[in-house]
Amino acid sequence: MENISSEYLDEKLETVRNIDFLQYRSKELPTWCPGCGYFGIVDALYRACRELNLKNEDIVTVSGIGCSGRTPVFINSYGFHTLHGRSIPVASGLKLAREDLTVFAVAGDGDALGIGGGHLPHVARKNINITFLLFDNSIYGLTKGQSSSTTPYEMKTNSHPAGNPDTPLNPVRLALSYGASFVARGYAGDPEGLKEIIKKATLHQGFSFVQILTPCVTFDKENRTWKNLKLKVTGLKLCVEGKNMETAMRIAEDEPHGVGIIYQDKDRPHYQEILRTINKAG
């Protein structure tokens, strides 16, 4: 543990008193383990909502099951904690029926790429206008440390004590090839940077996919730890702006810890726009 000076603490407390994004925090005390990366993620989410000036009652946060599934409890918005893997279908139906709302769908890596992996291609290709936040800690947190779809090959987990025999998925590459119109990567350890990404994702008209690198401090002591993340996470080295699939794919392959907006297609209409045009023409 680092030594923390009392001046430093006072200064921190002062900023906390002055921030106005607290209106997006619910009264519930988070139940996550101390030090969990998820605190940074909701922090970024509060700030993004503040800067976007969203009305609390016009936000709905939809989650699946997992430690990440608890997110809506801690946000002062309408919240729906659904089923393991199913935040995408519920958020999609909600957004299509209520275009006026801002809909965040959150999911863990098990949620999004394991049990609910079948939904991702379709919400992406349909370009349904929701913001999808993947809390990627590369482990099953809530069920206490089994391998997930992003756990590295050979890493020892509670379900694979001899080492994970499965090759991990590459979430950004998947999102790109499924045709997501907005793909980004953020880092739970940098709430300010993540806030910017979530803001852009929310403003994007279409399906926005944000992979968030975050540690599970309790069940992963060797791979995606704070220490490793601090060493590895950087800004994107390859320069991208907007719609450049080739570079975006290179980032997916070569920069697994590069943080920033990886791909954005602003011209593609979102699903409701498509439906309106098609139904008018038909």
Partner: peptide
């Protein structure tokens, strides 16, 4: 109204529950 052809029945009922949560008949 809006019609959504989904990737499977789990997604179909999920979307219906989502729309219902939004206060719409689904």
């Amino acid at each position: 109204g809006t019609l959504l052809q989904t990737e499977d029945e789990i997604s179909a009922i999920g979307a219906v529950v989502g729309a219902g949560f939004g206060g719409k008949r689904a």
